[in-house]
Design a protein around this nucleic acid. Structure first.
Lengths: 155, 155
DNA sequence: GCTGAAACAAGTAGTGT
DNA sequence: ACACTACTTGTTTCAGC
């Protein structure tokens, strides 16, 4: 399997390191890779330009913030023409952290973080169901995340 | 709905800003919030200590890296006793970026990034199915991610 | 629990090979 | 395409309020 190769091995090394720690000093990156820090700078600019990396973020731990429940809800849509509007509405619900289209039928899947089960219920019935075009939902509750990581930079 | 309140409003402001851009200079954070930069430093240390934030990462764009296919696969497990070992094996597959337990039956759900459909097939049949305790899988392919963001810091 | 200044480290940009 | 240097900016620590 071949990956996009607009990036050479140096780019990939930098990407991997940045992926582990986005706040790593560029000077240390340069030392680790045996190159000058201005080159690191140039390469990172190139990577930013290409769009692979945009903005570094901290992965917040949902549990520590108080979110005990994570759920995936698939949404049946009455008609494909509503999908765009539904996505716009879903984006306004802060508890909905992810939304994607799936194959098979006019359907969306969302990921919801909630403080507890009653909060999840509230989100589903008071915020998701009232959206025009939503026919029904089907929710699976996840009770433990085993692991979560970024996409592999090379396989 | 009340969130965990081991963090005061200043902590939350810092969290929000860091969540938007983890590489924002602490000095600018201090200016934005009207506090000294040493205080920013102290608060961030506190946040790290608490575990909400660990390491900043760049959100890599899977498409630009060459991953055209994202899929969620639910795995039926023959017996609950295998779950731990299955997770260990799944973690060794780089294409599997996420893994969690779900309610209902002895089941796991994984998220897979693949270069194309045949790559996905390969991962499923040559890497996931052979794992001991895996009874069968059911895969939904996502064809567009509408949005993806972090957990809300306050609702 | 917070600030301010001073020492130190890192990021940036220009120039030359 | 890369490295070197000089310059600017951010980080960290610590005394003091």
């Amino acid at each position: 399997m071949k990956l996009n190769n607009q990036f050479d091995s140096l780019d990939k090394e930098i990407l991997k390191k940045l992926n582990v720690d986005a706040r790593i000093p560029f000077t240390q990156l340069a030392k680790d890779l045996g190159i000058s820090n201005s080159l690191v700078h140039q390469r990172i600019n190139k990577l930013k330009q290409s769009g692979v990396i945009n903005r570094p973020t901290y992965m917040l731990d949902p549990k520590i913030l108080g979110y005990e429940t994570a759920a995936y809800t698939s949404i049946a849509v009455t008609n494909a023409k509503f999908i765009h509007d539904i996505i716009t509405e879903l984006e306004k619900i802060p508890e909905v952290v992810e939304c994607f289209n799936i194959t098979g039928k006019y359907a969306l899947v969302i990921k919801i973080f909630a403080i507890n089960n009653s909060h999840l219920r509230e989100v589903l019935y008071e915020k998701v169901h009232p959206i025009r075009g939503v026919e029904g939902t089907d929710t699976i509750i996840t009770f433990e995340t085993a692991f979560h990581r970024s996409v592999p930079i090379e396989i």
